[in-house]
Simulated scan of single mutants.
Amino acid sequence: MTREPDLTDAALILVDVQEGFRDPWWGRSHELETAYAKIARLGREWNARGLPVVKVRHDSQNPESPLYAGSSGNRFVTGVASLREDVIVTKTVNSAFLGTPDLAEWLRARGISTIVVAGVQTNACVETTARMGGNLGFSVVVPLDATATFDLEGPALAGNPPIRLSAEDLMRATAVSLHGGGFAHVTEVSTILSALEEKS
């Protein structure tokens, strides 16, 4: 996907913008609070234009998770909780397309073919939702600076120490995989806001 799709009727999909990600349990993040502010800014712009907003909430089934269903960490952050939404999708896995209600069905019933995906974590629920959206035939836009993630450790291979990637490394990898792989158009919040202004 080399050019940004038309955002005239795009739905904004806000993935897991929840209080629980502020918990130190996750480790070091890349500008989580900055991402939350930019996500809320996108939401306000969508609300002001009467465009569809979908809030996605991860209802963890793990009692030790900061996102455990029913806990204080499960709540949306204030800047997102105050937004008007058209629907709330709840999920227990990475992809918003495997939640309740059925997101793809909801979008298609309203003739929505373009989605803007923002939220947490960049390399997990955001990337998985974007990939599935692309696979399902939607035009997907991901404003990378309206996402955030955390440092992550992987496996130890060939006798080497465990692979560890910083949040910044993971975000770059997501950008390359999604954009270079044709799943989504990866861009920035400022570019999206400019595109909305041009349509006004």
Results as ranks from 00 to 15, higher is better:
Leu103Arg: 13
Ser177Trp: 02
Val140Cys: 07
Trp26Asp: 14
Leu67Tyr: 03
Ala10Pro: 07
Ser71Asn: 10
Thr114Gly: 00
Leu83Gly: 02
Thr191Pro: 04
Gly134Ser: 00
Thr147Asp: 14
Gly111Cys: 08
Ser190Pro: 03
Ala118Pro: 05
Gly111Thr: 08
Ser200Leu: 04
Leu42Thr: 03
Ser190Lys: 15
Pro66Phe: 02
Glu85Asn: 13
Arg3Asn: 15
Phe21Asp: 12
Ser29Ala: 11
Thr2Val: 10
Gly119Cys: 04
Pro24Met: 08
Ile13Trp: 01
Ala175Gly: 10
Phe97Trp: 05
Ala96Phe: 09
Gly73Asp: 03
Thr128Gly: 00
Gly182Ala: 05
Leu107Val: 00
Pro66Ile: 05
Asp23Lys: 04
Ile39Val: 13
Ala146Tyr: 01
Ala69Glu: 15
Lys38Met: 06
Ser65Val: 07
Gly50Phe: 14
Leu98Glu: 14
Ile88Val: 15
Phe21Glu: 02
Arg22Asp: 14
Arg131Trp: 08
Ile112Asn: 04
Thr100Arg: 15
Arg44His: 08
Gly43Gln: 01
Arg28Tyr: 08
Arg131Asp: 07
Arg164Asp: 04
Val89Glu: 05
Val142Cys: 01
Pro66Thr: 06
Ser194His: 09
Tyr68Phe: 11
Ala195Ser: 10
Ile88Pro: 15
Asp23Leu: 06
Gly137Glu: 01
Trp46Thr: 04
Gly182Met: 09
Leu144His: 04
Ser113Ala: 12
Ala104Glu: 13
Gly27Leu: 06
Val176His: 09
Gln121Glu: 11
Arg44Met: 04
Val186Asn: 12
Gly73Leu: 03
Thr8Gly: 07
Ala37Val: 03
Asp59Gly: 08
Thr147Lys: 00
Glu153Met: 08
Pro52His: 11
Asn135Leu: 06
Gly73His: 11
Ser29Phe: 05
Ser194Pro: 07
Lys199Val: 09
Gly159Asn: 00
Asn47His: 02
Ser190His: 11
Ala37Ser: 11
Asp145Tyr: 01
Lys91Gln: 05
Ser95Ile: 08
Ala195Gly: 03
Thr128Asn: 05
Asn123Phe: 05
Asn135Tyr: 08
Ala167Met: 13
